[in-house]
Design a protein around this nucleic acid. Sequence first.
DNA 1: CTGTTAGCGCCTTCAA
DNA 2: TTGAAGGCGCTAACAG
Lengths: 333, 333
Amino acid sequence: MRPTAKQVAELAGVSTATVSYVLSGRDRRVGAETKQRVLDAAARLGYTPNQAARSLRRRRTQRVCLVQGSFGGVPTDERLARDLHEMADGHGYSVVTLAVYSEARAVAAVDVLRGGIADAVLVNNVGDHLTEELLAQVVSARLPTVVIGNGPVPPGCDVVRAPETEVSAEAVEHLIAQGRRRVAFLAQRYELYRDRPIGRLLGYHTALDRHGIEQRTVVSGADDRVSAYQAATGLLRSPDPPDAVFAASDRAAISTIWAVRDAGLRVPADVAVVGVGNIDEGLITNPQLSTVGPIRHDYTDVVRLLFDRLQAEEPPPAREIVRPWTFVRRGSS
Amino acid sequence: MRPTAKQVAELAGVSTATVSYVLSGRDRRVGAETKQRVLDAAARLGYTPNQAARSLRRRRTQRVCLVQGSFGGVPTDERLARDLHEMADGHGYSVVTLAVYSEARAVAAVDVLRGGIADAVLVNNVGDHLTEELLAQVVSARLPTVVIGNGPVPPGCDVVRAPETEVSAEAVEHLIAQGRRRVAFLAQRYELYRDRPIGRLLGYHTALDRHGIEQRTVVSGADDRVSAYQAATGLLRSPDPPDAVFAASDRAAISTIWAVRDAGLRVPADVAVVGVGNIDEGLITNPQLSTVGPIRHDYTDVVRLLFDRLQAEEPPPAREIVRPWTFVRRGSS
DNA sequence: CTGTTAGCGCCTTCAA
DNA sequence: TTGAAGGCGCTAACAG
């Protein structure tokens, strides 16, 4: 059995209260020699406080939870995770992560959160599975919640938006201004199964609408590199191939560059390519990748929102951050 | 305040015991109408059992923990996560993930694990940070532990090995057999800072040793695509450029293919390229990527190991799985 | 079929 | 400077 505070207390010849005070660092004046005896006893037994018991008593877990779509993510997700871990460390919190890559996982994650696994939640771009309704269940459990994403969120949580529609439209207008008229869109799955276009897809349509361009080609495939390559190859082989591809992710755009070159065509002369994400990898492609994405890859402001809310005496009003995005023109367009 | 079982009991006009039995599904015969009243009351209050209290009482969390290096991982990691979540679901367990991308994170993770966040642990390839000594602390907390990785592990845990050294040597010998004599190695950081070569690097040296080839070039850069591109470019520009590159990851190998082509050279005519990982993306490069890696991307056997151990009455003997690896020759070599 | 009760391990107030 | 004791919310053994 794992050692308990009681066993440490017996070994040290003190009460469990003293053990608790010494090990949790709460300040109460404890004799130096007593303190040492407790520390020795704890070390000898390999004692670690039972967090379930501690959480029950303190009504706090001293943990925050990151809700992440998957582990095959983009570098941006990794940066977010690091910023969160770093600030959590500084505040004496641990971080646990829940993976939500399907509706079923979202439901399971909400149960775990409502069960009290953590004191606050940071939800990263899993809006397609973690619906507003499910999020509302999290918020109603009085969990401070920050959501990164452009979907609807329930009242009471902070939200971090990205102007992806607007900047995507800007990128597509740039393609149009070059004289491109057959612009195809390589979509992420979750943008497709909707009544009306949203996000990057909406930006695509908006730009073409503005210029009265009728021709639209939207195909799925931006979710992974292999699908993107295949989708792009399919487009290029079609009877009326595109002269530009706007891909909903940089990874898909890079696969598109490959596909164009493998088809014996040139980027950007024959086909222009633009991605979304502004990842570093766009700097090593040939030509370098034009992209739409965040100016800075830094999430300290987002994470600060979470800890502000976590440590506030009473719930602050819901706040919204809009992250600065921009279109970065490089060689591929 | 979050509702408690006591409040549900009062609303339903029953005892907390009945609430507990109804909601935890433990079988005890409960009247149909009573049961319904409890369910209604729970739903009305939005009750979710406090997991800290439940864990404390049951001495089980009904959770398993995945310890993962990072979230910018390879597709393989994602597959492992999915297989784990799936089987956990089937057994009524939740999954929480801890990120260990540094020594500091490893220490923090061990604390959290020893604090009892989960009932079992699956450690995925974080051997460089999560040392044998730290793992021993986890095992000594009586946590069933399965470790994926080729590093040393403490007694009492199951381990999953990959014959990466042997198959890497095979790949390099294949390059030698083609007449390549200036074979460079693109290394991951953690393989470099050692007294003696291990893993893929060891395979590289072994093959060259066998054939009495003196020339060795080892550079860092296989950890991410951008570094790999830069490292490969550096190699190609050196006075004595390689005629083959063995990269410690497929992602690095793919960057190397780009670098070779951007340098105006041909793959494999001028420079052969081989990676490690056997990821699907190797099928869409041009030429297709030769690689060293697992035959199947399936972790159900590994995950089963974990649940076997978790549900065993008494600790089974430590088991070892060796995953089948192979060299897959494709167009790049 | 249902209620009562004794803790799980820890923290923290109160008393000494 | 330290100890005694109650209780966080839940479960499971025991009573009825």
